[in-house]
Design a protein around this nucleic acid. Sequence first.
DNA 1: TTTTCTATTTGTCTAGGACAAAAAATTAAA
DNA 2: TTTAATTTTTTGTCCTAGACAAATAGAAAA
Lengths: 303, 303
Amino acid sequence: MSTTDASLHIAAVERDTGIPKDTLRVWERRYGFPKPGRNDHGERTYPVEQVATLRLVKQLVDSGHRPNRVVGRDPEELRALLHAVGDDRGVELSTEADAILEALRRRDANEVRETLRGLLMRHGLERFVVDILAPLTTAVGEAWASGRLAIHEEHLFSEQVDRLLGHAIGQQPGYSDQAPMLLATLPGELHRLGLRMVEAIFTAHGVPCISIGPDVPVDQLVDACSGHRAAGIALSISACGATPAAARAVLDVRAQLPDDKRLWVGGQGAGRLRPRPQGRIEVFDSLTDLAERLDTDDQRRTA
Amino acid sequence: MSTTDASLHIAAVERDTGIPKDTLRVWERRYGFPKPGRNDHGERTYPVEQVATLRLVKQLVDSGHRPNRVVGRDPEELRALLHAVGDDRGVELSTEADAILEALRRRDANEVRETLRGLLMRHGLERFVVDILAPLTTAVGEAWASGRLAIHEEHLFSEQVDRLLGHAIGQQPGYSDQAPMLLATLPGELHRLGLRMVEAIFTAHGVPCISIGPDVPVDQLVDACSGHRAAGIALSISACGATPAAARAVLDVRAQLPDDKRLWVGGQGAGRLRPRPQGRIEVFDSLTDLAERLDTDDQRRTA
DNA sequence: TTTTCTATTTGTCTAGGACAAAAAATTAAA
DNA sequence: TTTAATTTTTTGTCCTAGACAAATAGAAAA
């Protein structure tokens, strides 16, 4: 039926999985997996099933497992492990959130949009983000990694959420007298969604935000912070962004940032940074955490 | 003053310039540029000036120059060449657009936002995108490549525009009776802005859109198109996305797509695809072009 | 002019080695 | 027991240098 009968070259696998070429080759050498075929020209060709398995492996490695233990194991085992990780975090979907997953699977873009919009209206921006969107996003990610959701369905979800949040943030009243927070992600980190959610929480608390988006070099962050007279910087770090390089970058930002500017670090990966951030770096490991922190901040200010 | 006195390792250069590691090494071997130093461990360390030059080279290569002719040449010459390319396209900034560039350089986020919003109100979505945003985006890209605009200033611009367009698109009345267009970019192509502008034009013409965002594999596109009962697919291809792989992907999409679905291809890179797309693929090489095409479509329908 | 053929250019892949930095395991001290 | 310092294992990323197909430019023929 389809012309592309199911195998990809190494660059495509890197794009699809986020695993660098060098790592793919070295895993093959060390663990015997993946085990690509070869084309006429001796180049590796990866069957799609192996690529799917690699996606699972990637998620597990990102969430703390050692490649040692997971590369080459049966997809079923991996799926089980992945689900265990999810349960650990206590992911429990509300029925509404479940309905959205269902609508995504049905490719019903209107329903996804309207359900999300309805939930936002009912719960208000902050509760919507903290209680519904955060667990839903995790669930979508997991469903994507284990193949229960097509790539384009996951993409559609991201787009819809991004747009909805952008709109909601714009609606929120702004207190222009307050110094803004500067929002961004570190170099190599491309996930926008986490950043948008952080922006939503800040905005809901009346803190104006200037988002300069994903993938910003350290020196640029510092420069932008002073240039915009921001009160501080908030960085979002996704599960796969918790690399040693990111940890170093965070420390680097703190070192270059004037003492009177605050530095917030959040996201799925923030809690797993090694070496652990220290010294005037405020780490929050969930959006709930961030919201509470802002509450106490508010109280201190009004008191 | 700054701790990072000005040299990057190869992975950072890849991220900053978009030039793959392999290509950086082979350019060094062939043309003697870039000429990185080495750290204690024998690894390449690229001085920031060379990275800046590489950014210029990248833009030139993306716009059709051969590496042969531009790699290793003086930054000043490159800048001149780049400007010549710009002039060819007839980039002439309105005074308002110029004011935005100026505001960006002053890091005045509010002014950027308000000026953009004002222009949108005054000219309407379509004229705003076609006459103002398109040339402005090109100018920002050029200014960034030649170092006249900091990276974070360019990022801020993208974020603001993205948000503004998202909002404007949401405001537009939707005709739900019409089959929607499916919008996306091909794998490896991460530029959102072009896509958003296309979406804006379609929406302004009353065509509902479902955007699944950047970086979508071919089979996913086809699947999504049928799943959402879309009238067709519109792909946006940026200057640096006009690779042979992209050209093949376009043909591939056409081959897998049912005959009754349309396929539109646009963006800076669309006109430079080799092998040139053919057979029921509608290429437009500027947003003006797209807008006109939609006009005639409208007339045919009402006639 | 357009088309066909040939030469050059260019990006991306390969192998297998190397090694520092991160994480885990072990030992020593409190 | 817990905490801190040490050793061992694991892991990702970089290295060299070669190869070649696909893309492009230039020359020749129709």
